[in-house]
């Protein structure tokens, strides 16, 4: 067991190293001259030289890479060309907002996807099954940015049921200012009992979370259906039927819990996908998360910021994968389902 742990940790570290090298390669080698990007196109040769000097661009590439790694490890993720703030500070503000959105979306996706998957499995090859398969297929095929625009136009614009954009009503910052603990607005509002901001945040969350939830909900419904149908063919489901339980009881009371195992590991994997999908949604709803930060950085060709976002998300991705992997290795998925 310890060997397995050490092995997986070693692999994860290797992947992180690779991720750093790749990010470095993409950001420093591909774009040609980063000095021009920093100093601007109208810079004098002297300014360019100063920029080169400052970023160590005249050093050989391996030396630059080493310096980059050293900076990263010591917590220096560079200075954003756009905000002129340390990238790390920008990320520390933007990431929690993304977590909030993706977390809400995943909760929604689980709450919708699993019951729909059960429904489809229960009425396999019948109309509800057809409906769920069709719906989940549409949910994974819809372009998120377009769905975001459509829902925003319809429910926020035309009907006015929900706010058009933002994380919460900015006026509340003066009437009931929020004390920050985790930087996740909804959580901070909840633990400090700031109800105006909490309700406003939840109200703002509905539409973007719905959009981000579409893909995970579709995948979860499909996976739940497939896993349940497989479980329903197992001996223990047959035993349930032989004991006189109806099909619905067999599925929900005996087959569902073992079937949830693959679904749960899937959720962890969908998390990273939802995070990046959320980028597009954040851009549409002006949600102050990583996505909006990335979009604005892209617009101003802010390479350190883009590298920071890339690196952060890749690290989260590696971490999530590692946790899922270890959980699956620690316990026999067939047996350990308490």
């Amino acid at each position: 067991m310890l060997r397995h742990l050490a092995r997986r940790l070693g692999q994860a570290l290797l992947v992180v190293a690779g991720v750093v090298v790749l990010t470095f390669a993409v950001m420093r080698v591909v774009p040609g001259d980063p000095a021009v990007a920093f100093a601007g196109p109208k810079a004098t040769p002297e300014q360019l030289a100063a920029a080169r000097e400052r970023f160590g661009l005249d050093d050989p590439l391996p030396a630059q890479l080493l310096a980059y790694v050293r900076d990263l490890v010591t917590g220096d993720w560079g200075i954003s060309l756009r905000t002129r703030q340390p990238v790390r500070d920008d990320l520390a503000l933007a990431f929690p907002a993304s977590l909030e959105l993706v977390g809400a979306a995943l909760l929604l996706a689980i709450a919708v996807g699993i019951p729909l998957g059960v429904l489809a499995a229960r009425y396999k090859t019948k109309f509800p099954d057809f409906g769920v398969r069709l719906g989940s297929m549409l949910a994974v095929s819809v372009p998120v940015f377009w769905l975001a625009l459509a829902l925003q136009t319809l429910f926020a614009g035309a009907l006015g049921w929900f706010p058009v954009a933002g994380e919460y009503d900015a006026r509340l910052d003066t009437t009931s200012p929020l004390t920050l603990w985790t930087n996740i607005t909804a959580v901070d509002a909840l633990i400090t009992g700031n109800w105006p901001i909490l309700t406003s945040t939840l109200h703002h969350l509905v539409l973007p979370a719905l959009v981000v939830a579409a893909y995970p909900a579709g995948v979860i419904a499909q996976m739940t259906r497939a896993a349940l149908i497989e479980e329903a063919g197992q001996d223990h489901a047959r035993m349930g039927r032989a004991l006189g339980f109806g099909e619905t009881s067999v599925l929900t009371r005996f087959a569902l819990r073992p079937a949830l195992n693959p679904v749960l590991s899937l959720i962890a994997l969908v998390f990273a996908y939802a995070l990046v999908n959320g980028f597009l949604v954040e851009a549409v709803f002006n949600w102050p998360g990583l996505g909006r930060y990335a979009a604005e950085s892209i617009r101003s060709l802010d390479t350190p910021a883009i590298a920071g976002v890339t690196l952060l998300v890749a690290l989260v991705y590696v971490l999530v994968n590692l946790v899922v992997d270890l959980l699956q290795g620690l316990v026999d998925p067939r047996v350990r389902v308490r």
Partner: peptide
């Protein structure tokens, strides 16, 4: 290593540069 980047993200980074 390549799988550690969500597809859209690495594409984003590349498309920027």
């Amino acid at each position: 290593v390549f799988l550690a980047f969500p597809a859209l993200l690495l594409s984003l980074a590349l498309a920027v540069v």
